[in-house]
Simulated assay, not measured.
Amino acid sequence: MTDTAKADLKRELGDGLPVLDELSDADAADILELFQAARKTEQKQLMAAIDETIDALPWMFRGTARKIIVGKK
């Protein structure tokens, strides 16, 4: 992890959390790593849910619905 873990964590969570100044660099790095992993997991689960929902539509609507929801790939 970078030596600016606190700055990276503040950027991820927003600067309005003064408690972040109380964290050690190691703790900030650990929390940042956990936060980023959780965000990636959330993104994967969201895309899986979107795919599942679109797959439940009649086939003629799937392409249009996908373009509306996720945009062009």
Rank of each mutant, 00 (worst) to 15 (best):
M1H: 15
T2L: 11
T2A: 13
T2S: 15
D3A: 09
T4C: 10
T4P: 03
T4D: 14
T4M: 08
T4A: 13
A5V: 02
K6F: 00
A7T: 08
L9Y: 03
L9W: 04
K10D: 06
K10A: 08
R11W: 00
E12V: 06
E12R: 11
L13I: 00
L13K: 07
G16R: 12
G16K: 11
G16C: 07
G16M: 05
L17Q: 01
V19L: 13
L20C: 00
D21K: 12
D21E: 13
L23Y: 04
L23S: 01
A26I: 05
A28S: 04
A28G: 03
A29M: 05
A29D: 09
A29N: 09
D30M: 09
D30R: 14
D30C: 05
L32G: 11
E33R: 09
L34Q: 13
L34S: 12
A37I: 03
A37C: 07
A37K: 10
A38C: 10
R39C: 02
K40M: 06
T41Y: 11
T41Q: 10
K44I: 01
K44G: 05
Q45A: 09
Q45G: 03
L46R: 15
L46W: 05
M47R: 11
A48Y: 04
A48C: 00
A49K: 04
A49T: 07
A49N: 06
I50F: 06
I50R: 13
I50L: 08
I50W: 09
D51T: 02
T53G: 11
T53K: 12
I54A: 10
I54M: 12
D55S: 14
P58T: 10
P58W: 13
W59P: 12
W59V: 13
W59S: 13
W59C: 02
M60K: 15
M60Y: 15
M60C: 07
F61H: 10
R62A: 01
G63E: 01
G63Y: 02
T64D: 15
A65N: 03
A65D: 04
A65M: 07
R66H: 06
R66G: 03
R66A: 06
K67E: 13
K67S: 13
K67H: 13
K67R: 15
K67T: 07
I68P: 03
I68R: 15
I68F: 15
I69V: 07
I69S: 00
I69M: 01
I69W: 03
I69K: 01
I69E: 00
V70S: 09
V70K: 13
G71R: 10
K73D: 02
K73Y: 06
